[in-house]
Design a protein around this nucleic acid. Structure first.
Length: 320
DNA sequence: TTAAATAACACAG
DNA sequence: TCTGTGTTATTTA
């Protein structure tokens, strides 16, 4: 029998290289019955880097009507933001959600042009230490039929980021949505995060990791903006410019106050040099009622198969 | 300088 | 909130 001993030449090549290998944590991975597979904890070097976050003080952007942003450029220290990006891309499970929409009579199949995943549960419930769901008020197990979906707790790696974000924004969050844009061809078109289950003036913290992508914002048309436009007298709409923020790795933008009810945002497709590099977007938000939980698991997990980053292929692939 | 090629943008369905 | 298409802006030869 040939032994598994290393040959002479491999003995003299390093077993790990600093840049290719992602440092592993000694702590046990996060797991839960709803996870397709366990999620490793953050490495000590990333945890050390996060202690320095936010890297800079947030800059307030409120010089447009109904706009209130807090922009950290960056929030995650530059020297670990790419490590964090690679860690999350490699460690999380992702979904490519498909759904159908009806436009008048025609039904169209939509494949979302990005990968998504989601963790968290709305304010009516919470996760007990053992991972089960309990009612927030009574702390008793929730009725079996409260949710059609199966809510998942945040893994430690995202929980750490959530706590940091709460501390530096003065807000609280119970949901974490993660998007992976594989290339400049992946996108999200103009929309607002103004669902009723988020409440009136939701605060949403949005992190950008990996490739730089433009984040576009424009005011909603007057007919759809969240103003009570009741009077018969035509109101003079103050002119508002569109914004283009070049979100770099580690940047965080907090959207708060009247922003969601009055502004749209998007990540448009981009061609060219940086089109080949991936970007991860992490948002923290707070869903107030159970409808939010059902919505997020429908549109960010869906019912299709699990996908996972394939390091050899260099892309997210169907898992198993 | 000009014009073709490419990318961004706006809007309809 | 997607895709397609026509228009406008930018880049390049």
């Amino acid at each position: 029998m040939s032994s598994k001993k290393r040959t002479l030449d491999t003995f003299f090549t390093p077993t790990s290289t600093k840049k290719a290998k992602i440092e592993e944590s000694q702590e046990p991975p996060s797991n839960h019955p709803t996870y397709p597979f366990p999620v490793p904890q953050l490495s000590q070097s990333i945890l050390n880097g996060l202690e320095l976050a936010p890297e800079v003080k947030g800059k307030v952007i409120n010089d447009q009507p109904d706009l209130d942003l807090l922009y950290f450029q960056p929030y995650i220290p530059k020297d670990i933001s790419l490590d964090l990006f690679r860690f999350l891309r490699q460690s999380l499970f992702f979904y490519k959600v498909q759904y159908t929409i009806k436009r008048g009579s025609v039904e169209t199949n939509i494949t979302t042009p990005r990968y998504t995943t989601v963790f968290g549960v709305d304010e009516s419930s919470q996760f007990a230490p053992d991972g089960s769901l309990v009612d927030s008020a009574t702390k008793r197990p929730i009725p079996k039929d409260r949710y059609k979906c199966r809510p998942r707790p945040l893994p430690q790696c995202l929980e750490a980021l959530r706590m940091l974000t709460e501390a530096s924004t003065g807000e609280t969050y119970n949901f974490c949505l993660v998007n992976y844009y594989a290339s400049g061809n992946d996108s999200i078109s103009y929309h607002s995060d103004d669902e009723r289950f988020l409440g009136a003036n939701p605060a949403i913290a949005s992190f950008s990791l990996g490739a730089k992508r433009d984040f576009l914002m424009k005011h909603k048309p007057p007919s759809k903006a969240g103003h009570l436009n009741t009077g018969d007298v035509p109101t003079l709409q103050a002119e508002s410019k569109s914004l283009k923020l070049p979100l770099g790795s580690g940047d965080m933008i907090l959207m708060r106050g009247p922003t969601q009810s009055n502004w749209l945002h998007s990540i448009p497709k981009r061609k060219g040099a940086d089109a080949e590099k991936g970007r991860i977007n992490i948002t923290f938000r707070k869903a107030m009622v159970k409808a939010g939980t059902e919505n997020y698991y429908t549109y960010n997990v869906g019912s299709g198969g699990v996908s996972k980053w394939d390091e050899a292929k260099g892309e997210v692939m169907p898992w198993k």
